[in-house]
Design a protein around this nucleic acid. Structure first.
Lengths: 162, 162
DNA sequence: TTAAATCCCACGAAAAGCCATTGTATCCCG
DNA sequence: CGGGATACAATGGCTTTTCGTGGGATTTAA
């Protein structure tokens, strides 16, 4: 799995009263170069208190990988169950949301709570995927490198200034 | 088998007094993109106490796959029997139901009993197919990951709130 | 006729689409 | 090099559409 277009960079955007957020243009660019969908897939991040996001093409790729794994392995009941569970997590526990012509999504209430997103959303490119954070939670997270927190602090100041 | 349109997401819908249920719009979208039928196929899930559902196009695909498998493998009596059984399950034990212009099906009584669906139906996308659960049974099922149960709980709360 | 399924309409809430404003970075030309 | 014009990004508010759902009427079958 070698994707040629990678998510990178950071941005801090507002979440309005209706739960709308602009997806930063530089991330949308990657999404649309990877496939032609104007849609992102949201999921709870497996280890951090934030959301993980990617494009549908990446989701399909991941699914194909799972399928191949199943066909190869011995089909014992344990392997079968694990496959079921993974599939549920990969698809039922995610939401696909389209963004409109101005690049905004309506953050689904469930995801908003899972990611504990309030009125600010910090976007962080991580290569194959990107993350969406409540900036305060990132600052409070001990496993996040200080240099990255500095970026979050900078984005927050930047916004306060205007 | 690489399908381009995958079932994804979750929703909790009401089953009314007549046994009618709305198929969530985002699942119908996938069904209609895969083929042009406004119909779903229902079956008892093979390992969970819920229903498995998909579109007619997928049923055909699945059948073709079974056929190919039979031709490849040595045709001993054991393999032959397994083929017969799987074919029975895939076709006799399923029901095809159309949904109306507002996207509702009339849940067949047999399926309703098999899936133990009462007045709420939890829809879970799982990629190639989707599942329909009695939400309470999902919460009681030990083989379901806790993260997924959280989603079920959220959907239940969401409904209670309104 | 009774019961069940299909069709039809209607309503409220939520979401999608649309236009308008602001601020910022970019470009172009003097 | 400077300054104005331009393009695009982010955001707010408003309008229109869709979705889920309930209820009644009409048709079909036993």
């Amino acid at each position: 799995m070698a994707l040629e277009h990678l998510f990178q960079g950071s941005a801090l955007n507002a979440v309005d009263a209706k739960g709308r957020v602009s997806i930063p243009a530089f991330l949308r660019g990657v999404i649309e170069r990877r496939g032609d969908a104007r849609t992102i897939v949201l999921a709870k991040h497996q280890s951090f208190p934030c959301l993980s996001a990617y494009d549908p093409a990446y989701a399909a790729l991941k699914h194909a990988k799972l399928e191949r794994l199943l066909e190869k392995e011995e089909t014992g009941p344990a392997a079968e169950l694990e496959y079921q569970q993974r599939n549920l997590m990969a698809f039922a526990a995610t939401e696909e949301v389209p963004y409109d012509s101005s690049g905004r999504i309506l953050m689904p209430p469930m995801m908003r709570r899972k990611g504990q997103i309030s009125d600010l959303a910090l976007f962080l490119g991580t290569g194959e995927t990107f993350q969406i954070w409540n900036p305060q939670l990132l600052l409070d997270e001990s496993r996040i490198p200080e240099d990255l927190k500095d970026i979050a602090r900078f984005r927050l100041e930047e916004r306060r200034a205007s």
